[in-house]
């Protein structure tokens, strides 16, 4: 007997064939690793420091006797292994402001002498955090609202659909800016505001899928067996509509990262000293005529991240679409 492979295994098999989408996935995973390991990748504390026959692990533990020591300058006197970027994201050095990439600072420094590479690495966390949490909020909202409309139909559907039409006409970015100006910009507020303004797309998809499957036999069967509405919606109907929702969510992460960096660019995003790619790019405007690295590096990071998520989304979409033309 041949065991049927699950639906998701089939999707993965299709996805794997698409080399561009796979490379997008690799970039996405690499960014995750960078975000997770940021304090290990860019830090002014040494991994290992051996002095007078004693070994220390300053990056992991606090040593009172090593307080105030600059590990970067100890390499001649002691055995030191530093992280790849031996600076933190907030360590300023007024002797080295706006210097181009060099051996000491591989991506150069900003207007307060902070290491750009360290700031970029720590900025990855903001992008990923905002991308995932904001999308999670609006996917949840979209699923609930769309499911109510699609499952109950009639007046409920009419009211929700009208409401969605109103929300779609909103100038979303302007709305987000206005709300952030009133409640004050911060990481949490950015995530929540993007989350509560972005759900309409998902709600429409879920509503459409629910309208498609609600008259199907498996739904009638579960209803006949006496299942509650909640269990029919979430355990029987939702899994059947999940694939297009997840595709849309993947593209959603790309656009959320773009919105977050635009907000930070305008000064309405994550507040300093937390490093954010959009904020770094925004500060580069003062030195644009010569400091090419401050403009090039953060913009390129945003671009690569968005491209990677879009590639994954596209590959995912082709993989779940049976009509997709096979090469």
């Amino acid at each position: 007997m041949i065991r049927s492979r699950g639906y998701w295994a089939g999707v993965w098999r299709e996805f794997r064939r698409n080399r561009l989408a796979l490379s997008g996935l690799v970039v996405v995973l690499a960014l995750f690793v960078v975000a997770l390991l940021a304090p290990l990748l860019a830090n002014d504390k040494a991994y290992i420091y051996i002095s007078q026959g004693k070994a220390y692990f300053p990056i992991l533990f606090e040593y009172p006797e090593l307080a105030g020591l600059n590990f970067r300058e100890e390499s001649e006197k002691a055995f030191v292994i530093m992280p790849p970027i031996p600076y933190t994201s907030s360590e300023y050095d007024l002797d080295a402001i706006v210097i181009p990439p060099s051996a000491r600072h591989i991506l150069g420094t900003d207007e307060q002498g902070r290491d750009l590479a360290a700031r970029m690495i720590h900025g990855t966390r903001v992008s990923i955090l905002v991308g995932f949490i904001a999308v999670f909020i609006y996917v949840t909202l979209g699923i609930i609202i769309g499911a109510l409309a699609g499952y109950y139909g009639g007046v409920v559907d009419m009211l929700i659909s009208r409401f969605i039409e109103i929300i779609i006409c909103f100038p979303t970015f302007f709305l987000i800016l206005t709300i952030l100006a009133l409640v004050g910009p911060s990481l949490v507020n950015v995530m929540v505001v993007i989350g509560i303004t972005g759900w309409t797309g998902i709600a429409r998809i879920v509503r459409g899928e629910f309208l498609k499957v609600r008259e199907m036999e498996f739904v009638q069967a579960s209803r006949a067996l006496g299942a509650r509405d909640r269990s029919i919606i979430f355990r029987h109907m939702l899994p059947n509509s999940l694939a297009p929702v997840l595709v849309s969510a993947t593209f959603g992460i790309a656009s959320t990262i773009l919105i977050e960096s635009s907000l930070s660019f305008l000064g309405f995003g994550v507040q300093p000293p937390t490093p954010s790619w959009g904020d770094i790019l925004s500060q580069s405007r003062d030195f644009m005529d010569f400091a090419w690295w401050l403009t090039l590096v953060p913009g390129f990071a945003i671009f690569i991240t968005i491209t990677a998520y879009n590639l994954v989304g596209e590959g995912f979409q082709d993989a779940i679409d049976p009509r997709a033309v096979r090469k």
């Binding site: 790309a254 773009l258 960096s261 635009s262 660019f265 959009g278 790019l281 580069s284 405007r285 644009m288 403009t295 953060p298 913009g299 390129f300 945003i302 671009f303 968005i306 491209t307 879009n310």
Partner: peptide
């Protein structure tokens, strides 16, 4: 995928 504020800058 190019962010417009980057292209503008």
């Amino acid at each position: 995928s190019l962010p417009s504020f980057w292209v503008g800058l």
